[in-house]
Amino acid sequence: MSDSNITEFTNPSSFILLGIPGLERAHVWISIPFCTMYIIAILGNFTILFIMKIEPSLHGPMYYFLCMLAITDLVLCTSTLPKMLSIFWFNSGEINFSACLIQMYFIHCASAMESGILVALALDRYVAICHPLRHSTILTNPVVAKIILAVVLRSGMVVLPYPFLVRQWPYCRTNIIPQPYCVHIAMVTLACADTRVSSYYGLFVIFFVMGLDGIFIAVSYTQILRAIFSLPTKDARLKTFETCGSHFFVILAFYIPSLFISLLYRFDQNVALHFHVLIANVYLLFPPMLNPIIYGVRTKQIRDRLLRLFTHKGA
């Protein structure tokens, strides 16, 4: 690392991403599971999109939301993994300041969008289970399109101030980011100014996006569980629960790691930096890899269409 990267300067033209600090010698080995997760995420989400495109019976509200989830997962993992792998394989840690801001925007925007899509899926499951006879009249295609547009606009607008706030701060300590991608909190901590505006806005985004979405999902599933347990037979309860089981597992896969990382940020005094960074990296890759597997295995319509596709090809 050159002296110019660690001595005092103002407003650098680029930043240096370190990968996994303290585990540089193991970067090649660490890249193997990350590359595998990325390949699974790419293949899985493209498969979901392909299956839903060719199967007319999957052209419904829930599946439109699943398409948006797959697209969001592709954006989330692709905005981080290529640069991460270039660091692991070629030690190519330098990133242009503007490119860093763009990467930061897409990471936070995709995360917020994924949270909003999970709310839309919870709404779809609520209507399907609590008001089954009115599902097709409530969630019409225009309504679904408006919900998707609202999720996209909310995510894009609420994250938009991030790059503008980060760009205005002077950087005179270091341009080294001790992780393999750019995020808001990592860049703000490098600034040599009073960054409370950025910190407060970051907390606002967390509560406005994750907090409100978590409340809406909790309310939806409270109503769903009440409806399920009011069914007369055990078989009916199990069958109805299976219709929203996939979505429930996806919610857990998204929110539990997010909660865990938030706790680490606030109580990480005794947590090694490399462990912290590894967990944060897994959080960005785990949902995009797991979501298509969960929906592909647990959703009967997708599973049956996928089996027919491979059976037909093998015949």
Rank of each mutant, 00 (worst) to 15 (best):
I95V: 15
T7W: 13
M113S: 13
S136I: 04
T80K: 06
L190T: 09
D235H: 05
I279D: 03
N11K: 10
I102E: 06
Q168Y: 09
Y64M: 09
D194A: 03
Q269F: 11
R125Y: 10
P132I: 05
P82Q: 10
L133M: 02
L264A: 07
L252G: 07
H247T: 15
Y171Q: 07
L306A: 10
L203E: 13
K234R: 13
P163L: 06
F90V: 05
A99R: 12
C172T: 15
N175D: 07
N141W: 04
L66W: 02
F9T: 12
I215L: 15
M157Y: 06
R298W: 01
F310E: 04
G60L: 06
L18E: 15
M52E: 13
S13E: 12
L307R: 13
S246C: 08
S258D: 02
F241S: 10
I177W: 08
V144E: 01
V119T: 13
D268E: 11
L149R: 03
I95D: 02
H131A: 10
Q103V: 08
T222E: 10
K239F: 02
I6C: 15
I129K: 01
M210C: 08
L264W: 00
R266D: 08
M52F: 01
I302G: 01
V151C: 14
T299M: 09
H274A: 14
P292F: 06
P232E: 14
T195N: 12
A236R: 14
L190C: 07
T222C: 13
L278I: 12
V271Y: 07
A218P: 01
V127L: 09
V297Y: 09
Q269M: 08
V28K: 14
K234P: 00
V127K: 06
N291Y: 11
P170M: 03
N270D: 14
V219T: 02
L101V: 08
